[in-house]
Amino acid sequence: MDCTLRLVNSTTGNAIEAQNLVKSYDGKKNAVDDITFSVRKGEIYGLLGKNGAGKSTTIKILTTLIDPTSGSVNVLGYSPQKHPLQIKKRIGVVQQAESFDFTTVENNLKVYATLWEIPREEAKSRMEELLELFELTDVRKTRAFELSGGQKKKLQVARELMHDMEVLFLDEPTVGMDPIMRRRILDNIRKRAAGGMTVLFTTHFLEEADYICDRIAIMANGKIRVEGTSFELKSKYGGLRTLEITTPDSIVETEILKLKSALIDSGLAQDAMMEGRTLKIVGKGITKALEEILRLARNYIRNIESINLRDATLDDVFIEVVNNQ
């Protein structure tokens, strides 16, 4: 059999498939708990969830680092347990944890190009392009461990893009980067996906997932709670609104907690949180119960500067899903 032709599952056309996937590290608690999902070739699929939701464990199984406890997986038509090398030759992985060689930025890229057998001239031009794209040109002679957190992350992503791949696994790739760089990287990834590369992406920045992902799955406690396009999820959780009350004064945290309990207990909202001087109240029936909510909020907020009611964002969907798990 010519293995190189098995770029996707021949029957389904999916680049990644996971069926009833379970992973338990200690035999008691499942880090990944019976999840089933698939990613089509050329699709950007987002796995969202709180820390410990099971996203990274899922990626580690798919990238052959760890074996699942049960269930089946295939990446590009190959089983990670049976044909790990066939998968590893065709994927790129940006791990959540820091990883770099103790040499200069430039050497990190050069060494990686050699490891992936990129022809010298090609490697040189790719390196220049990536150094430019990731704004690492000025620090090309700097040793990797001397870089800032964001620069190290940029180096990690740039290094991975030195070689060609069919599937790219990105585990929180933009941590520590400024918004302009984040957007630049996301656009680059989207361009590559348009060229047929499949991407599995995890992030804590939900606006990133909203921006880049074709489909999104939200994980909580090892399970996929919801899955769909960003539009579908927002529609599904339609009616979810966020009421933002900005106050000129700061409010004591205990007061916010009391208000949150009062709102949730009375069924007026699903969640409430303070961001700076803005109190955010998230719920489905906010529009109808606006007067009642404001009356309740008045008990804790003396002065109100502004009030804003807006539609659901992916953040709201995420909070709703995770809180109602």
């Binding site: 590893k88 992985v93 791990q95 990883s99 490891l115 992936w116």
Partner: peptide, 18 residues
């Protein structure tokens, strides 16, 4: 030790190596 400590051991083993 160094590769395990600095993440390169896992990084290399998700690359085309046994």
């Amino acid at each position: 030790w160094s590769d395990r400590r600095w993440g390169m051991f896992e990084q290399l083993l998700v690359g085309p190596f046994k």
